[in-house]
Design a protein around this nucleic acid. Structure first.
Length: 111
RNA sequence: UAAGUAAACCAUAUGAUCGCGAAUUAUUUAAUUUGAGGAAAGUCCGAGCACUAUAGAGCAGGAUGCCGGAUAACAUCCGGUGAAGGUGACUUCAAGGAAAGUGCAACAGAAAAUAAACCGCCAUAUUUAAUAUGGUAAGGCUGAAACGGUGCGGUAAGAGCGCACCAGCAUUUAGGUAACUAAAUGGCUUUGUAAACCCCAUCCAGUGCAAGACCAAAUACAAUAGUAAAAGACAGUUGCUCGCUGUUAUUGGUGGUAGGUCGCUUGAAUUUAUUGGUGACAAUAAAUCUAGACAGAUGAUCAUUUAAACAGAACUCGGCUUACAGGUUUACUUCUUGA
RNA sequence: GGAGACGUACUCAAGAGGUCAUAAGAGGUCGCACUCGAAAUGCGAUAGGUCCGUCAGGAUACGAGAGUUCGAAUCUCUCCGUCUCCG
């Protein structure tokens, strides 16, 4: 069960004050919150694709990934993942690799 | 067999493991059930539903447009009529009015809508190859379009001037609910454009669930009642005019933003059968409940020979339009090709 | 989800049925002057998309495709794209 970002204020908070890091496929923003658990958000803009089906599929795949990985992540953060057009048409395995790369690079996994 | 025409339908399957939305049950994390489309899309029409003082008067404005029917309604559908296309099955059509009026018709051409007369043709006169006057519109280039067409008669030359056939117009009769069709008679002929203004007939208040209703702390805000001030400027109300309403200060109580609940899915519903109708569709009976989120649920992995098109609900229906891999069924046509 | 607006040279744009848009105009581009050099400024000039070509010209082009009309950038319809507003 993932807790998601709900309000416009939460999103704006991450956008303005959060740390930002990206690769070719995604941009990751994150910031500490006052809670013990993580909150997650996914943004897929219309610039990625005009088709709602394709955007929905990307969002679902990322959510699937996050729900499996959430246990290993450092707790007490708001995460926001923005999708870039490059990630369109890639397989699920490629997306997983790319996302793993992001989180590893910033040392957000608990060892 | 081949080529084609029309109509209807299916269209990300099945199983296993993990995960998500909703409902129900037990009860606080378990079980069971259920969970995107034919276009959910575009938002192009028509409605339901909700709110707004749709008060009212006038002028604008918009939509539809052969006829009859269906429907809650429609720019939709069905059956006819007419025109165009195709050998044919069949397909396509914003298809009222141009003798109510106005506008426009570039260039070319003698002339572009009141008809007119450049080159011609003919007659007469003067005088020797031209001019003047009159008649005429058969022939001529142009153009998208030239004031009926073809033939014969006729004539100085010609002309619906006369006749025959054809086209168009009007009237009458017959058939049809009607659009219209057929026949007869008549005078002798009226260009095109209304997806130009317009005329005629019928219809139309606006805003869209981010509508709106209820609960409700603080601050902001709104509007209401009383009191005081102000009297012609501003704002609102339907695009405009008239008309109508409000404005500033202070006091009282009220509403109300963030948030929550509802609106939200039982409906012009779906399926089956019967009856009526050429048909769209209607009536009757029985059975069924079939997504309801709010940063917004359908995904991942493996197997099945391969898993693939266009594409994802957000108040709900009826249509239209556009996108679409592959496949199934039914009815029908044939100039031509082969058997 | 709902409501609108706009698509014309490289850019911003006029044109709103009629002699191919000589594609009006402006920016831009090029040259000269000024300057140590540049910018700004002043003066002057060119070409205007794509394809074919016998180098005379022809065809096609106003987001795309149909229709009305003798004739559409302009009128009508259907798509495509871009932008704005509504909590």
């Amino acid at each position: 069960m993932i807790e998601t970002l709900k309000n416009k204020q939460d999103f704006n908070n991450v956008y303005k004050n959060g740390k930002m890091f990206g690769n070719r496929d995604f941009t990751l923003r994150y910031i500490k919150n006052e809670k013990s658990t993580n909150r997650l958000g996914v943004v897929v803009s219309k610039k990625v694709s005009k088709k709602a089906v394709k955007r929905n599929k990307l969002r679902r795949q990322i959510k699937e990934y996050l729900s499996t990985i959430n246990v290993k992540l450092a707790q007490g953060y708001d995460y926001l993942i923005t999708v870039k057009p490059n990630s369109l048409g890639q397989s699920y395995q490629d997306l997983v690799k790319s996302l793993d790369h992001l989180f590893k690079k910033k040392g957000l996994f608990i060892n």
